[in-house]
Write a protein that binds this DNA or RNA. Structure first.
Lengths: 200, 200
DNA sequence: AGGTTCATGTAACCCGTTACATGATTTC
DNA sequence: GAAATCATGTAACGGGTTACATGAACCT
């Protein structure tokens, strides 16, 4: 009676943040799992676990899904490195992930995913798409801020002090992101470049 | 760098964010799983999944750990509500979770957990502890901002444009949180109250 | 010779999400 | 009497974290 449907395993094959980050980094340049780990270790921007238990399985999964191909390099040196590179499908998946529309949900679920996508956008999809992304992000963040402020206006006195302050903190954070998005849009337009094609 | 903590090896039984949120809400007032779900649904501050698949199992787990006790309030209406309330151990666990020191890790792992804890702090631990929390948070966030700015200064020109902008966005966000924490500390001191609740 | 870095993995657990499922009660 | 809401659950899955494990190479 339990249907055990194919789950949401549809063709979309949405990427997790970690998977998106891996594909994005590998788009910039092919490298080994260890090198990716290092990036996570000493890059303060996006904190994924730098432990092998997350990266290696994720790489395997992506390879299993046909998005990555790995070749063992440095065969002579007895310290083999397994270097991963994007396949066409991998590139397609990355592009799909990056071009997913910025919706209310993107904002509500926290901006981390949006910022991660942004960090890869121009090199994969070009400046046009990046500008569009920023515009959409600004729009949605502004809408969310408005919503939060409505909530604040109507509920503030019903909330306990710390609850109210915590809410205000959230509003402040989103406002900062909004200001940034607008500034980045200007800043970004200043240096228009075509989509860099480094693949192959 | 700094290794993370031994996690939940011992009886300490660290709480997940969801569990902390549930205990915090139930500390304010006992209620049913459905009511908690509603809170998650229409409170924009902290978005947990409002689906039953997360809340009910979590409540069960907490009950199994002796932190909650549930009573069925069906009475006349033939629609039984299972009302959860904190036990002494639950209160203790909540207090322990809230009094965990604010460390570098607290900040690096994203401020969501910190803000969630803050939202419950004064009603559980009183204003003294809340003030201390804000001070510690400001200290750690300031340190993290400094670290990010060092990284920015040294790496900015090595980063691609969007990468650099994303980093700056992160810095902006933390700065907003820092300003908030300092403001909240003042604001908060303005209305000192003793720890609310039945501890007297 | 011994510690650190390079480099890759496995095993177990936890738990959040999605989807499925049920049935009573209120509301239009 | 249909739709929405109240109210509670289970099954299955994915995947991130922790911890354990191995071994070569490099530096001192």
């Amino acid at each position: 009676m339990v249907r055990t449907m194919p789950r949401r395993k549809a063709e979309g094959a949405a990427l997790s943040l970690l998977e998106g980050a891996l594909l994005g980094l590998l788009h910039d340049e092919p490298c080994s799992g260890y090198a990716l780990r290092k990036v996570f270790q000493d890059t303060p921007m996006f904190h994924f676990s730098d432990s092998p238990g997350s990266i290696y399985p994720a790489l395997r999964r992506l390879e299993g899904r046909g998005m990555l191909r790995s070749t063992i390099e440095a065969a002579r040196t007895l310290r083999p490195r397994q270097v991963y590179r994007l396949t066409r499908e991998g590139t397609a998946a990355l592009e799909a992930w990056l071009s997913a529309p910025v919706t209310r949900d993107t904002v509500v679920r926290g901006l981390d995913g949006a910022m991660l996508r942004f960090a890869f956008l121009d090199r994969v999809l070009g400046s046009e798409a990046t500008a569009g992304f920023l515009a959409a992000l600004a729009r949605e963040v502004a809408a969310h801020v408005a919503g939060l402020e409505r909530f604040h206006a109507s509920q503030a006195r019903a909330l306990p002090l710390t609850g109210r302050l915590a809410l205000e903190s959230g509003i402040d954070g989103y406002k900062a992101r909004l200001a940034w998005a607008r500034r980045a849009a200007r800043h970004f337009k200043a240096s228009r470049t075509g989509p860099k094609g480094e693949d192959r």
